[in-house]
Write a protein that binds this DNA or RNA. Structure first.
Lengths: 352, 352
DNA sequence: GTGAAAGCGCTAACAG
DNA sequence: CTGTTAGCGCTTTCAC
């Protein structure tokens, strides 16, 4: 039944150099040399080269990178493939900070015989499980995973990924996690508004919540309830764009909604909130105080400058990256969580 | 001299499962099963499992992903490895938009027997040539390359990468390029300021210039010179952060510099410029008109809203992605350039 | 319970 | 000018 080792037609498989070789009537080595542009040193007949090229094109040849790499592999060099996995829908500053920190570590750890490849890969929020190769042991040596939605977290809680994983911003059982001190951001941002003597606080957030945001929203609500005896206004926008935040707030105002303090859970939403507040003739902070998230350096440059809670990106990354390297080294390290407490920066937007 | 095929000690090479096997005194197959957590079905003795695990750790075993992938390869599935290569110093949101567009195309093109892996990889600006594996034919099937510095461009002009390459925002001989219509952004932004009757225009840019930015700076200068008979003030900031733009402008003002119109070449610099202008007691646009770049949705939400030129990122990506796929398919397509003309959006920051 | 052996796709070395 | 061969590191039968 089985063909000789290297003469397989692979009738329904993918095109390999063997099919091309057979098709043209030359050896696989000849094909290889042409595809690698080494046919000159091999002094192949121009006509043969042409035929091989044509066949590769006609058959739709796609090189198998694993095969090439295995072959090209320099003994005495081990390679770590690392990735940062984030959702398409997420804001990128955290990812940028993570990448820079990871690259710095990699540059420091690289030696003659140890290389690292670092990349950013994205998944559709809530559909992490559909990401190809996630469960395979043949893609990554380690990843930093961030901006997951609850659906992703649920999937992760039941899954065991066959490589080193550090989860950023989220607590997931049996995984290594680095996250904000729970409830801290929601509670402190509520307190900032209450200390500015707000009596009608509101929170502006995107409809799709990462767990970190969900935690912030929940703690904000609880704190307001405790202190004022009633719930804050909940303003859910369609997304995190300034325009979406703006229209959520406009709709609220148009419907007769009142508020004198807003917690905007991303910088984009804060930008939109500023615009909606100011274009409705209200002043910040006199009529409406605003507090936001400090993960973005832009907050200081709002008019007026935005008070922020959080902004623990750097601190989280500073924990996550060394943790990943410890896991790569196989150091015994029980799954668990590292908590980071972010700073609170009071600026004009809550000064009254 | 040479050892039997599979018994090599590889004295100074990297640790493989063969070294582990030899070390423990079992077969490579046993080691493999343990490392893949398949030892249960194999009913390995717990003690053996333990010893194998310990040896892997002690020897610092790092799995070779190419080997695993080659082995795991599902025949009848071809895989394309695509990447977006950008510099660390570049703004991530632009890259994110490119990735989303690429992913959309990939989602559409994926079939049962054709998979795509997409990632973002970064290089240090100006040191593209040092990126590991860039010249190897065993990493990517195709890339979109963006945010290169002149040093990178020079390197590229002399290099032939052994896979499909689309260069974004830059014209490089012998490569497939998608870029803004040359000079357009610099010229139009100058015109926008001149039409606002500015007589002392200035340009604010980062010290490190991508070619696209260099082009913008140059064309701005030429246009001002043509129309006013003298050069614009050139304000070079250390980087693209708001704080850096702010201090560049503060220094300029402090030194007695005067200007009534500014072209800020990124949104971060525009944010800094706004702050420096306003905190110096000047008004926008009455005292100083400002025009910026529209690649960022935030411009509309400045106070006052920022007039922008450019913002052709979406259009460029819309050209670049299909081009990449054509190259992957091997369609004959001579290297050359596609030019995209960006829109001009006039807002309050130049209305006077 | 464990080992031997085949072979994933590719390329470099060697032999004509 | 071209073909044969070995083997990169790994996993999966199959045989004992």
């Amino acid at each position: 039944m089985s063909e000789p080792v290297h003469g397989k037609p692979a009738k329904q498989g993918v095109v390999t150099i063997y099919e091309i070789a057979e098709h043209v009537g030359v050896s696989p080595a000849a094909v290889s040399s042409v595809l690698a542009n080494r046919h000159v040193e091999r002094r192949l007949a121009p006509r043969t080269v042409e035929k091989i090229r044509a066949a590769a094109l006609a058959l739709g040849y796609v090189p198998n990178m694993a095969g090439r790499r295995l072959r090209a592999h320099k003994a005495a060099t081990r390679q770590f493939d690392l990735a940062i996995l984030t959702s398409f829908e997420a804001p990128l500053p955290l990812v940028g900070a993570t990448l820079r920190a990871l690259q710095r570590a990699v540059d420091a750890e690289s030696t003659e015989d140890t290389r690292y490849a670092v990349s950013i890969e994205m998944f559709h929020a809530g559909r992490l499980r559909e990401k190809p190769g996630l469960l395979d042991a043949n893609r990554y040596h380690g990843i930093i995973l961030t901006n997951t939605l609850p659906a992703d977290d649920q999937f992760l809680a039941g899954a065991t990924l066959p490589y080193a994983v550090v989860v950023l911003g989220r607590r997931i059982p049996r995984h290594h996690c680095v996250l904000e001190t729970p409830d801290f951001v929601g509670r402190r941002s509520a307190e900032v508004l209450l200390e500015a003597r707000c009596t009608q606080p509101a929170i502006l957030y995107g409809r799709m919540l990462t767990q970190a945001t969900e935690d912030r929203v929940g703690a904000f609500g609880r704190t307001v309830r405790e202190r004022l005896g009633r719930d804050p206004a909940m303003l859910a926008s369609e997304g995190l764009l300034p325009s979406q935040g703006e229209s959520a707030l406009e709709t609220f105002f148009a419907g007769g909604g009142r508020c004198d303090g807003i917690f905007a859970v991303t910088d984009g939403l804060a930008v939109g909130a500023y615009r909606a507040i100011q274009s409705s003739g209200r002043r910040i902070p006199e009529d409406v105080a605003v507090v936001g998230i400090g993960d973005y350096e832009i907050a200081e440059f709002f008019t007026p400058p935005l008070s922020t809670v959080a902004g623990a990106n750097d601190a989280m990354v500073a924990e996550a990256v060394p943790l990943l390297f410890r896991l790569l080294r196989g150091e015994k390290d029980a799954p668990g969580e590292v908590r980071v407490t972010p700073p609170v920066l009071l600026r004009e937007s809550t000064r009254r």
